[in-house]
Design a protein around this nucleic acid. Structure first.
Lengths: 144, 144
DNA sequence: ATACATGCAAACATTTTGCTTTGGC
DNA sequence: GCCAAAGCAAAATGTTTGCATGTAT
């Protein structure tokens, strides 16, 4: 777990140097996100066992928004009503989602889209390009 | 425009044979979707000039839901609060979205993910797999 | 001491449902 | 005539903002 702690510490430093204050809610938020195996909704963050302070939903909303602006977290759409968030890992992840039960699996594949990104950036004039790739289907459990 | 009409007619036949009734709202809905160059929200469908009857938002919601179940339309997440929908074209489309102004461009690229889909289906046990690929960035106009 | 962060409450946008009436088959 | 579709209204859900108070720097 000390590796985890170091990771949180690094993230907190990044937050501080980008102007955020080191509050209990911020730490809890980062811990929750770091401990998750999948992208989480704001509700899931609040309910996470790693989120050990009580705080208002609006606070989590604002925290995660600030983290997103600073590109410390990444927002992911999926198809649920609520947005999902995850720490922006060094390597990009794609997802496999069940249309019926909503389960999410991380696809740790070599994403075939990376090289396209540069080409699209050039042709379109867009900057700061990134992509989101999801596969939707029906999982084994839901096929009956 | 007669090509368009034939296309709508085909879609209506498909709807009928899958149990939907041919109502004015259904026709208007299909026309709106067929005339759009981009995926639309339910509101945009209602506001489309091709949507020439007045009808309740709940009706459009239910219509589009039925069309989605029948896989006549495809739902797309983007990152806006409202879901977007488009007719399920024969060929798959990917998108380029501006994080700032929300503009959407259709990327008519040869999508490099198609072949992955089968592999993922096999390994995961998922069925009816399809994917969604979006690029997010900042468009030329918003870079200042 | 000064901003930034939080809690609380309320507004908002969109989706979703229940129930009655209408209209396609 | 029967059952699906539409209209209307209301609930549910999740996001977003305003303002007073608290707290990290």
């Amino acid at each position: 777990m000390s590796g985890e702690n170091i990771r949180i510490e690094d993230l907190l430093k990044e937050c501080s140097s980008s102007g955020l204050r080191r509050t209990a809610a911020l730490e809890a938020c980062l811990r929750a996100l770091a401990s998750a195996e999948q992208p989480m909704t704001l509700q899931q963050i609040a309910a996470s066992s790693a989120f050990d302070v009580s705080c208002d939903p609006a606070t989590i909303y604002r925290l995660v928004s600030r983290l997103e602006e600073r590109r410390i977290v990444r927002r992911i759409g999926f198809h649920s009503r609520a947005a999902h968030y995850c720490l922006r890992e060094s390597h990009h992840q794609d997802y496999l989602i069940c249309r019926d039960c909503g389960s999410v699996e991380v696809l740790d594949i070599a994403c075939p889209v990376e090289h396209l990104e540069k080409k699209i950036a050039q042709e379109s004039g867009f900057s700061d390009l990134e992509h989101e790739l999801e596969f939707f289907g029906r999982c084994a459990n839901c096929q009956d």
